[in-house]
Amino acid sequence: MEVDNNDQDEKDLMRNFKLENEDHTLGNLLTYILNRMPETEFCAYSIQHPTENVLYLRLKVKKGNDVNEVFKNGVIELKKALDIVEDKFIKAMGIYNEENS
């Protein structure tokens, strides 16, 4: 594990996450959610070269938080949101089928 920051105090507050085989689909979604979490100071992603197929996500959190935890919570929150979308879609399909049968 490498952390590209020498400042000991700030070391645990920021990190680059490397996600292999991911693209803007997940990058945009994750940065959207992480940017709206109260613990986040800064969050952005980049795909350094279109042929590389690797996503780098930079996350800096406010003091008193753990980067990994915040990142994990962001992904968990995203997973929850997707469950909600799935649930509501199935329900909406049920309503539509009832109305049109």
Binding site: F17, N68, F71, I76, K79, F89
Partner: peptide, 29 residues
Amino acid sequence: LFLEAIKILQNKCKRIIQDIENKGSTCFL
């Protein structure tokens, strides 16, 4: 197809969560 699309996104999330918990090398830099 739409439900499958959601499932694929969910699996992506699951994979990342697992990777963090296992301290997978692919996830951190």
